[in-house]
Amino acid sequence: MLPELFFAYFAVTIVLFSIFVVTARNPVHSVLWMLLLFFHIAGLYLFLNAEFIAAIQIIIYAGAILVLYLFVVFLLNLREELKIYRFIGGWPSGLTFGIALLAVIILSIRSFIAAPPGKYSINLIREETHTKALAKLLYTDYLFPFEIISVILLVAIVGVIVLAKRRLKT
C-alpha cells in the first residue's frame, strides 16, 4: 500500500508540474516549475533503485541545464512578452495532435510483453553497489558509445562558441 501511495504522490506532482511548465505565462516561472519537476523525477529514480541516475539528474539537469536556461531568460529582455497571448494561433490543432498521440501510446502500451529478466537483480546490485555495476558496464561493453558522447559534447562546445560569438566588424 505504501509504495502505491508514494508513486501516486510522485505521479500526480510530476504531471501537474509538467502542465504548469508548458502553460506558465512567465518563462521564469516555467523554469522554476521545471526545477521542482526535476527533483520529483529524481525522487522517482531513487524509488526505482537507481541512485546514480538520480544524482546526475539533480547535478546535470537541475544544476547545469536549468541554470543555463535561467541565465538566458534573464539575459533576454522579455518584459513585453508578458502582455501578449502565450499560445500560437493554431493551438487547438496542437492540442488535438497531443491527445491523439497519447491515445495511440496508451493503446500500444497495452500490447507490451516483458522480456525475460536479465542478471542484474536487486540483490546483485545491492551487493556490488549501483554506481560500480553501472560503471563496469559503461567502461567495458559501452566504451565506444561513451567515446562518441565525448565527441558530441566537444561538437556542442565548439558550436555554441561559433553561434553565440559576436560577429567582428570587417
Binding site: 504531471v15 509538467s18 518563462p27 502565450r86 499560445f87 490543432s93 492540442l95 497531443g98 491527445i99 497519447l102
Partner: peptide, 17 residues
C-alpha cells in the same frame, strides 16, 4: 509526460519554452 511535452512544443509561442 512525453505527450505534455509534445503538446507544449506545438502550442507555445515562446521559443525558450
Amino acid at each position: 509526460v512525453f505527450t505534455i511535452g509534445v503538446t507544449g512544443f506545438l502550442m507555445r509561442r515562446n521559443i525558450i519554452i
